[in-house]
Design a protein around this nucleic acid. Structure first.
Length: 484
DNA sequence: TTAGGGTTAG
């Protein structure tokens, strides 16, 4: 295959005309003379070409910072590294900044071995150098190694704690992140800064600890931390995940300088909770104010359309996105499949889903399977369930969704067969969990469990609620399930 | 002059 042809992540479907490719000549010219796109890299080159020594090049550290930020400038970083080695700068004491910055570039590129080599070669290390390496381990997902390093570091500051905490949250260790916060503040008496609060709020968001989230918000307000950056986004997201759209919107409104992520978070929140009109109204407002949406914003917008049954609008937004030069990803196509499926256009949903790469299709086929259940198409449900099982064979939800579809269609023999196949393959469906936080402790429940210490009182309360609902005229939807 | 932060399809 020609190196000049980009392989699209998603194969184009008839819906989506193929994008024009770059002209061959343009690609060759770019390759022959790669001009650094970043201002700092350009400045570095200007000084270097003018014959300035590395130590006298004011753009050295900004250029390395750019390499760390861009993640596409590995070649430039290597060139600067070579120049540093040649100049002898990294081994001099004044080179501690350059070496730390260089180690950071490799750490950010995921080249931990190279980062470690630079670090090991440093005659003098600062706490920042340690934190850079710590961050590299955290980003690579080697949390055990990161923890080991964190414990053994000669000293630690708030940044070290923040680095580990953010890493824990990013890799799903939210509970550990909360514990880390408690230890940092209560045992070590350190004062949290804005970054600490971003990590903490993100952790309590993952765990659904609304009470902790509210306390954190209070603390943030008292400290007069700005909500203009990541902190505002984290707070909006925390309220959204806890189902408090009122608080999320209030928080959003209090952000003075709103960026695309603030807008995306609040739009995504309203979309997820079924308030499609509000989500789309906010999207229009955002554009009117000149904030440019990104691919994630469009996931939120398309989600609003699918939850609101707005098929035509969904396609209009999808085309708008492509018109803005944003390449659709599997999430966007997933929204379209969901949009078709929920609205009952099962054939269209199926055709679109079938045209996409299978390995990323788990969520998409689940949504289609759910749509087949809703609209009573058992034949298609069987195919979708098979696709799901192909993607993740040990996942129980495909069997459960399929048996639900059989139940809805009254095909009890097929339902029995599916359940026995599940047993044969020893597939266990992980039960969905609900939880509620009362006075700082989290109480979790699965369907029909009696493990909670106050289980008896809870079931009494449920009975009361049920009676109240019935007397108010509510009728539950029931099926006559046979013994399986 | 070098470190740590946020949004994504069921």
């Amino acid at each position: 295959m020609s190196p000049f042809v980009c392989t699209p992540l998603i194969p184009d479907t008839p819906l989506l005309p193929r994008k024009p490719r770059f002209k061959r000549a343009t690609a060759i010219r770019c390759r022959a003379a790669p001009a650094p796109g970043d201002a700092a890299l350009r400045a570095f080159r200007v000084h270097h070409v003018a014959g300035h020594s590395l130590a006298a090049n004011p753009a050295l550290l900004p250029a390395l910072a750019a390499c760390a930020r861009l993640l596409t400038a590995a070649a430039e970083a290597e060139q600067i590294h070579a120049l540093l080695v040649k100049s002898g700068l990294p081994s001099s004491v004044s080179g501690v900044y350059a070496s730390t910055s260089l180690a950071r570039v490799y750490a950010r590129l995921g080249r931990l071995g190279d980062a470690r080599k630079v670090f090991d070669g440093m005659p003098e290390r600062t706490l920042v150098s340690w934190n850079v390496l710590l961050d590299g381990l955290v980003r690579a997902g080697d949390l055990d190694a990161a923890w080991e390093m964190f414990v053994e570091m000669p000293e630690r500051n708030v940044s070290s704690w923040n680095t580990v905490m953010a890493g824990f949250v990013r890799h799903g260790w939210a509970q550990e992140a909360v514990e880390l916060f408690t230890e940092m503040t209560e045992v070590y008496g350190l004062t949290p800064d804005e970054t600490t609060m971003v990590g903490f709020v993100s952790a309590v968001r993952s765990l659904g600890l609304l009470g902790f989230g509210r306390s954190a918000h209070g603390y943030i307000t008292r400290r007069e931390f700005s909500l203009d950056g990541a902190l505002g986004v984290a707070l909006i997201n925390m309220y959204t995940r806890c189902g408090c759209m009122g608080a999320a919107y209030q928080c959003f409104s209090s952000v003075i300088s709103k960026n695309v992520e603030h807008w995306t978070s609040v739009i995504g929140g309203f979309a997820a909770h079924g308030h499609s009109e509000m989500a789309l109204k906010l999207f229009a407002e955002m554009r009117q104010l000149g904030v440019k949406p990104n691919g994630v914003t469009f996931v939120a917008v398309l989600n609003a359309c699918s939850h609101g049954g707005l098929v035509d609008e969904g396609f209009r937004y999808f085309n708008l996105m492509r018109g803005m030069g944003i390449r659709p990803l599997i999430q966007h196509y997933g929204c379209l499949v969901d949009l078709f499926g929920r609205a009952g256009f099962l054939e269209e949903a199926f055709n679109l889903a079938s045209s996409l790469p299978e390995e990323q299709g788990f969520v998409m086929w689940s949504s289609l399977l759910a749509a087949c259940q809703t609209h009573g198409n058992v034949d298609m449900a069987e195919v979708a369930a098979q696709k799901l099982a192909d993607t993740e064979p040990s996942h129980g939800s495909s069997y459960v969704l399929l048996s639900n579809a059989y139940a809805r269609a009254g095909q009890w023999d097929d339902l029995k067969r599916t359940r026995s196949r599940m047993e044969e393959h020893r597939v266990v469906k992980k039960p969905g969990l609900s939880w509620i936080e009362v006075d700082g402790s989290v109480h979790s429940f699965v369907t029909a469990d009696k493990l909670h210490t106050e289980s008896k009182d809870i079931y009494h309360m449920l009975e009361d609620l049920k009676l109240n609902l019935m007397s108010a005229g509510s009728k539950p939807e029931t099926f006559d399930l046979p013994e399986v």
